[in-house]
Design a protein around this nucleic acid. Structure first.
Ligand SMILES: NC(=O)c1ccc[n+]([C@@H]2O[C@H](COP(=O)([O-])OP(=O)(O)OC[C@H]3O[C@@H](n4cnc5c(N)ncnc54)[C@H](O)[C@@H]3O)[C@@H](O)[C@H]2O)c1
Ligand SMILES: NC(=O)c1ccc[n+]([C@@H]2O[C@H](COP(=O)([O-])OP(=O)(O)OC[C@H]3O[C@@H](n4cnc5c(N)ncnc54)[C@H](O)[C@@H]3O)[C@@H](O)[C@H]2O)c1
Lengths: 228, 228
DNA sequence: AGGCACTCGTGAGCACGTTCACAAAGCAGC
DNA sequence: GCTGCTTTGTGAACGTGCTCACGAGTGCCT
């Protein structure tokens, strides 16, 4: 009867995989699949079946032995666990190249993250309309956050302005930030920050390419430069 | 004498942090800092000092006890380890919202990842020029990859076309892929794939927001839907 | 030269995440 | 109801990564 209080904490690694399962399950559901085994889900998600079962077991025992998982019900449970039972409006700071691409991306709204607003400091950008959303001045940030009950902010400013953008978001009342600028943001402990850094991704790929190419084939010495 | 063959493998977690150190060190170098301690580097990178030292120790013993690390030399070593001693041209598949933002992003070229080409299937997009790069037909992909010696491909097509894009990249000779489409790509084992999925990031933030809000406050029962 | 303050490099212990393997549970057919 | 097949849920083993703590160098000051 009493709703499970203090829900068991779900490991970070699992939380990061749940959205992937969710997407696959949603697709399968749309294709008319009612029931799915951990094996099949693992195959579609590119992971190990035991991992799928362990991950799903953190949500509770929602499978049926000998059969698998009921797709619709599992979708419901994952959505509930991820807090996707209602929309989470986001506000974007920085209406440049990237901010515009984000604002114009329909996938956000569809997945429950409608763009509540986009702000910038550049007068040339303010007032322009990007796929239905008007760019507003950054001073209007607190008002947007409050009236639209926004708790997630997206930083899409140049690196030099990112800390300022984050500070403003925090002051406006946002509690989670998705940061695209290549800087480590300093925020109060209570604020959740995730970073997407394309240069880092490319550099990781570069590491593997370089390694594949025979590693340090002729490692040009290990001597330090003359300087000292 | 013999160049260190079969270099010690660097843990994935460390490889993922090296680019962050590199960026910080480069900035510090530009600001005239010659030497930096693990403590300071850790502070700037938002990590633990012991972790910084352990990470850097995989590159070799390049610090000086009692002093710290020589910034310029460390930058050189990290760049070498990450394979950043030369450029890695990339080819972008999909000249939509995101592909255009990526092509227009100067940061790529600056960091050693010049855009060697961008391709699409849409005749309306082909021939248009985005920040100096002309959009070409996807059939030209093999030619671009070969003449420009591209080993990294970026998938920026809609989800439904991503597997096709990946297949074409692999066939053209690319060995690493950065995938922005929300699908799990199937590729030969030898191909390195990294995925950037904004929806996943937002959903992880949503999980924490939901949890912060008191978790499942009134967990609407755990009964399964009537169906069965 | 000796002592002191500082910081690296790293072994050891711990926490977290992944994989294995199997008992328990459900379903179908008879 | 019993048998056999399938698939879940999970303890146990394993591997990776993180943190601590401290010995070992290094530079500086007296
Ligand atoms: N464009 C890409 O594909 C791409 C790729 C990887 C990373 N990034 C990163 O994303 C960020 C944005 O990139 P971009 O290409 O959109 O840059 P951009 O220069 O096109 O846009 C930045 C926008 O931020 C605005 N801005 C500047 N200071 C601001 C402030 N204090 N508050 C609010 N707005 C402010 C500017 O007016 C501009 O409109 C950068 O940090 C970049 O490194 C972009
Ligand atoms: N725009 C964003 O901010 C954003 C954010 C998150 C994720 N994404 C993802 O990035 C991808 C691209 O998004 P977008 O907004 O740029 O989409 P888009 O529709 O604007 O652009 C897609 C482009 O790919 C081209 N294309 C289609 N099929 C192709 C094929 N087989 N080969 C080559 N090109 C093909 C289309 O002609 C189009 O130009 C999508 O998978 C989307 O989910 C985009």
């Amino acid at each position: 009867m009493a709703p499970e209080r203090t829900r068991r904490r779900i490991p970070d690694a699992t939380v990061a995989r749940l959205p992937v399962y969710l997407r696959i399950l949603t697709e399968q559901g749309d294709e008319g699949v009612d029931s799915i085994s951990s094996e099949r889900l693992a195959e579609l998600g590119g992971v190990n079946a035991a991992k799928v079962r362990k991950d799903l077991s953190y949500l509770g025992s929602y499978g049926t032995r000998g059969v698998g998982y009921e797709v619709a019900y599992l979708v419901y449970q994952i959505r509930r666990e991820l807090g996707l039972t209602h929309d989470w409006p986001v506000v974007i700071v920085g209406a440049g190249n990237l901010g515009q691409a984000l604002a114009g991306y329909a996938g956000f709204g569809e997945r429950g993250f409608p763009v509540a607003g986009i702000v910038d400091v550049d007068d040339a950008k303010i007032g322009t309309v990007l796929s239905g959303v008007r760019v507003r001045h950054i001073d209007e940030l607190p008002q947007i956050v409050q009236t639209k009950r926004v708790s997630i902010g997206v930083v899409a400013t140049p690196a030099a302005a990112a800390q300022d953008a984050a500070d403003r978001l925090v002051r406006a009342g946002v509690t989670s930030i998705l940061n695209f600028a290549p800087v480590v943001l300093a925020v109060p402990r209570a604020i959740e920050v995730r970073k997407v850094d394309l240069a880092v991704e490319l550099q990781i790929l570069s590491y593997h390419e370089q390694r594949r190419a025979g590693g340090a084939i002729h490692a040009v010495g290990t001597a330090r430069p003359a300087s000292a």
